[in-house]
Design a protein around this nucleic acid. Structure first.
Length: 538
RNA sequence: GGGCCCGUAGCUCAGCCAGGAUAGAGCGGCGGGCUUUUAACCCGUAGGUCGCGGGUUCGAAUCCCGCCGGGCCCGCCA
């Protein structure tokens, strides 16, 4: 029924509500309801990686909003081994395949390790957005003994764990080997070792570096046989058991996961409940973000949409909106869609400040709630001016390079859309400019027809001889007709030459804006291209 | 073999997750306006069995079941 609204009416409130209810049933203390997000460190973080953490942060905010203590744990998986070289990264990483990403040098040279670089990108994005979190890393956790109790229990029950994994997922591997990967002390690889024995008295795992399948192909081990103490930080649990260890050790009450991890999570829930005696956290499963072609976006494939790319073109709020708007359903995202989200945020802002009506009170409440969450529950005191992003992009696109902001603001003034610049507007103009340049794209060189080219040469003569906008504007029509060209067609050609689209600002004012000289030159060059190069004749 | 998502106007989609009153937007199309057109615009207009079939309900695009079509994830990788 639609009678009762939970919190602010968003899915975040609903999730928070479920967590609280569940904890009440479990009878666990509710003074601190911790949420977790795992940060991959083995490839370039993309929107999906960021989303996991940002959404978890949203849940944290919702928990706090309903009166409970909460905290986001960001856990970098930097003990994971490198399985594939992400496209775009140097091939010499080949030699490091199978080694923990925290022990591989940073190919960019700016961080302490490969893994630090990758999770650093994600942490930077979180910081940029203003997400607060407590950071943990796999390296610290294993070296500092954070997970020792759990590792002990899991290895002590390795047999039943292995059987359960086989039963639940069909993965029979851990029936024979321990769900623990020691780092080989000779070759430094973690995915080539096989843990063969565990001695609970000494906390020692024996292993052989016998090779393993990594990224679809067999990587031979160095043959070394050795042993590590589980307190050494020289090994890690398999994912099939590690989540559970983390949940129990850090007292995690909520963690979301993408559907690709569904099996691992089920197994970990069981281990958490039955082996560690820690009721597993509440979960929600979300769909993956897809790229334009409908594929899962992946850290190991290049040209994926990174948080940094989004923020180059769009506002922070637009990015958070993308993640908070819905949890259900899959979403394909690409930079082309950024304007949509930027504008949608503006619409929410109008709603929030009562400048727009919405049909049902419930919807209004929910949308206002969404707006508050997008601002991390600290919404601004007043709305900013709103200009459609695409308009900004178009104006910024044709603006003279040395004064983009001034030009755009000037135009908006003339259209009576703004009174003057605001910080938010200026930022948007800059981003719109980047978006226009990179995404709208400088298309291929336009070649006018011979007729058009001849007309253009005549027009450029006029442009050089007068600065009267009316004369220039009139000349376009006169010259077009005299050359037997439909004026609208001629305008199109001119815009294609000057700004690469078939429309633009009023021709004469634009010419004066960018300088008659420069405009004339551009037009003459295009004409020569057509006349010399034998372009289309009609 | 297991699981999930999507299927709404010519196109791209919103709405679905907490069911409500004539199902929306942008683009496109068509007609017109802004007294040589151009950005931003304005007005009018085109009409979609909300994939199909059942069910629940006073009421379903929205919830449940089945089916069809498209796609994705997992299948001894973390």
């Amino acid at each position: 029924m639609s009678g009762r609204t939970i919190g602010k009416g968003t899915w975040l409130d609903k999730v928070a509500h479920h967590i609280v209810e569940r904890e009440r049933r479990l009878g666990r203390g509710s003074s601190m309801l911790r949420v977790e997000s795992g940060l991959g460190a083995s490839g370039i973080p993309h929107i999906g990686s960021l989303s996991d953490a940002v959404r978890a942060y949203g849940v944290k905010l919702a928990l706090e909003d309903s009166g409970y203590g909460s905290e986001l744990i960001a856990f970098s998986d930097d003990m994971d081994g490198l399985r594939k070289i992400p496209s775009g990264l140097p091939k010499d990483l080949e030699g490091y395949i199978g080694m923990p990403v925290s022990r591989i040098p940073d190919p960019f040279g700016c961080h302490g390790s490969y893994g630090e670089h990758m999770s650093g990108l994600l942490l930077d994005a979180l910081d940029d957005l203003g997400v607060e979190y407590r950071h943990h890393t796999g390296v610290e956790a294993y070296r500092g003994g954070l997970l020792v109790q759990q590792v002990r229990k899991i290895l002590g029950n390795a047999e039943v764990v292995g059987r359960k994994i086989e039963e639940m997922t069909g993965q029979g591997k851990f029936v024979k080997v321990l769900p623990f990967f020691p780092v080989c002390e000779r070759c430094g690889r973690i995915y080539t070792t096989v843990a063969t024995g565990y001695d609970p008295r000494t906390g020692t795992v024996t292993y052989k570096c016998s090779g393993g399948e990594i990224g679809g192909r067999w990587v031979p081990g160095c043959g070394h046989e050795g042993e590590v103490k589980i307190t050494d930080g020289e090994g890690k649990l398999s994912w099939k058991a590690e989540f559970a260890a983390r949940w129990a050790a850090l007292d995690i009450r909520f963690e979301a996961y993408g559907k690709d991890l569904a099996d691992s999570v089920r197994v970990n829930d069981w281990i958490s409940d039955r082996v560690l005696g820690y009721p597993h956290p509440y979960h929600i499963r979300y769909e993956l973000f897809l790229d334009k072609s409908g594929r899962k976006i992946s850290k190991s494939i290049g040209s994926t949409l990174t948080p940094q790319a989004w923020m180059r073109y769009g506002t922070k709020q637009s990015l958070v909106l993308l993640m908070f708007k819905r949890i259900v359903g899959s979403r394909s995202v690409s930079v082309e869609e950024i304007p949509k989200y930027v504008d949608e945020y503006d619409r929410l802002e109008d709603l929030y400040f009562g400048r727009k009506e919405v049909k049902s009170r419930e919807k209004l409440m929910k949308l206002r709630g969404l707006y508050e969450y997008v601002n991390f529950l600290r919404p601004p005191g007043r709305p900013d001016v709103h200009v459609p992003f695409r308009l900004l992009a178009e104006l910024a696109y044709v603006a003279p390079e040395d004064d983009v902001v001034g030009f755009v603001i000037g135009r908006l003034r003339r259209y009576n859309m703004v009174k003057g610049p605001t910080a938010g507007l200026v930022e948007k103009i800059r981003k719109a400019r980047s978006w226009a340049l990179d995404v709208m794209g400088r298309e291929t060189l336009f070649v006018p027809s011979r007729h058009e080219a001849e007309a253009m040469l005549e027009l450029s003569g006029v442009m050089r001889s007068t600065e009267d906008p009316e004369m220039i504007q009139g000349a376009v029509f006169d010259i077009a007709r005299r050359h037997g060209i439909d004026p609208p067609e001629f305008f199109k050609a001119l815009y294609m030459v000057l700004i690469g689209t078939d429309k633009g600002p009023r021709f004469s004012s634009y010419v004066l804006d960018i300088g008659r000289e420069k405009a004339a030159e551009t037009i003459e060059m295009a004409s020569r291209r057509a006349l010399d190069g034998g372009g289309p004749t009609s």
